[in-house]
Amino acid sequence: MLVVAASMSKGMCQYSEYEVKAAYIFNFAKFLEWPTSKLNNDTIILAIYKDDPFGVVIEKTMVGRKANNKVWKIVRTNKLKDLDNCQIAFFSDIQKYELVKILDHLNSKPILTIGDEIIDFCELGGTINFTPQFSEYQFEINNEIAKAHRIVISHKLLLLAKIVTNSEDEF
């Protein structure tokens, strides 16, 4: 462990939160499949809705690299209808009511929704949610929602996630 401690303490390769999150998103795309109709061209469009915590980090991570042979395009938007054309929609700082409205709008469209440490994101109908630092798992997945969006998530990814199911006490 000394190797890690010594070198990390120099600050040489400590990554920032959003560098790591960008790298996760990049890899999520490698471990899931969209329905073929949705990916008829060679581009994965990542939409960042309203609040953008990444800054230039996301471009540095995505642009010029391919995930499953698809190039990335980053779109930042304030408009709900812009989300319809993307493969991945990312939400960071958002009020629950607005989120519910959006998730409802995206319901069953083949779009992967990713939440940034949003409480109850997966319970409310989001697919993948990042968890806060030092959580047992780094992200949580609601696979039922993924299926509703016709997105197939690799079991390898599911193994590393906290699995959230749709609320059972609904009636």
């Binding site: 890690v4 990390m8 400590q14 990554y15 939160e17 790591v20 630092q133 030092f134």
Partner: peptide
């Protein structure tokens, strides 16, 4: 499927 790597990465991440 290696959770330890991810945990260590997590612990070493600068938080916002």
């Amino acid at each position: 499927s290696d959770p330890v790597t991810l945990s260590i990465l997590d612990a070493n991440t600068r938080q916002k």
